[in-house]
Simulated scan of single mutants.
Amino acid sequence: MDALFDNLVDSHCHLDAPEFDADRAEVIARARAAGVTTQVIPAIRAADWPALAQLCAGDSGLLPAYGLHPLFLAEHRPEHLEQLRARLRQGDAVGVGECGLDYFVDGLEPELQRLFFRGQLDIAREFDLPLIVHARRAVEEVIHSLRAAGGLRGVVHSYSGSIEQAEQLWKMGFFIGIGGPLSYSRAHRLRRLVTQMPLEFLLLESDAPDQPLAEQRGQRNEPASVAAVLDVVAALRAEPREQIAAAIRDNARQLFGRRAKPLFPQPLR
């Protein structure tokens, strides 16, 4: 395999999830065999931060981010924001998140979601770390929140908004995270976006164990799937796979490369 592909980065992967407890080492090995050498692992609740830190401390290819996911709103407490600051002072994080807004799931009180999201925006700016943002049926409000906060950078993962909204995001310094949903033939808007957008704002992700490829629908997703997502991007854009892989690697290094060194293994020669 071309050495470039040893540097594919899964920019969003929940390898700390219990779905991987039985075979995590094998999952990581399969990813690396596919050329996906690095995973960014965003936390979803404060209770998970210590175990995530321990997992990533044992493997230089696993990069932690710490945050409070809107889907776990019932478990978050205001004091967790100060605890997040304390966690980030440990110096191992490459980002803040997964954080954001979710107006798809019923019962998640919007104003409480905003409290935790805005708190994490402040923390990301304070620590000069990128945000890893969840935005489901909330892309427009997320854009307004990021613009109002100012001075931020990051990625909106599993992007589901319009091309026009994506352009607003990358003009603010945010990348667009794309994964398994791109492999579905009915994902017309997402495919148009990937075809038309500037490559320098694109990141690839698995969101494993969720969002599997179309041919693996209903199965557990793995970070190795990022290699297949790359194939779809190359086909849609009619551009060389190697060229896209190099750009994605550089995008990931640009966003996540400020805190943990060395972040990405060098190509095998």
Rank of each mutant, 00 (worst) to 15 (best):
S206Y: 15
E215K: 12
D207G: 03
G177E: 15
Q165A: 05
A234R: 04
Q219K: 12
D250S: 04
H188I: 14
V194Y: 04
A260S: 14
N221E: 02
T195G: 03
A247Y: 02
L202T: 05
D210Q: 14
R258V: 12
D231C: 03
V226F: 08
M197T: 06
E242W: 08
A227K: 01
G177D: 13
A238Q: 15
Q216L: 06
R259T: 15
Q196L: 09
G173H: 05
G177H: 05
E167A: 11
S183D: 01
N251P: 04
M197N: 03
D210T: 15
L193S: 08
Y184Q: 01
A208W: 13
S206Q: 12
A238W: 07
Q165T: 07
S185K: 13
V233D: 00
A235H: 06
H188D: 02
I248R: 00
L190T: 07
L193C: 09
V226C: 03
A238I: 10
Q254C: 10
P212E: 07
L255I: 10
M197K: 01
R253L: 12
S206A: 11
R237F: 06
R191Y: 08
L236W: 05
P181D: 08
L213H: 03
D250E: 14
E239N: 03
M197S: 06
Q211H: 14
R217C: 09
E215P: 00
N221W: 05
N251D: 03
P212S: 15
S185H: 15
Q216W: 13
R189D: 11
V233P: 00
I244L: 09
P181S: 10
L213A: 02
T195W: 13
S225D: 01
A166M: 08
I163A: 15
V233K: 02
A246F: 12
G257P: 10
L182W: 13
W170L: 04
A235F: 11
G179L: 12
F201G: 12
Q196D: 15
P181Q: 11
S162C: 12
P212D: 11
I178L: 14
P198L: 06
Q196R: 06
G180E: 10
D250L: 13
R191H: 02
L190V: 09
P209L: 13
S185Y: 08
Q219F: 01
Q211Y: 12
R186E: 02
L199K: 06
A214M: 03
N221C: 03
A234E: 08
L203G: 02
A234F: 09
E205I: 10
V232E: 15
A228M: 08
A228K: 14
P198T: 04
A252Q: 01
L203R: 02
R192S: 14
G180Y: 15
Q216G: 08
L199T: 04
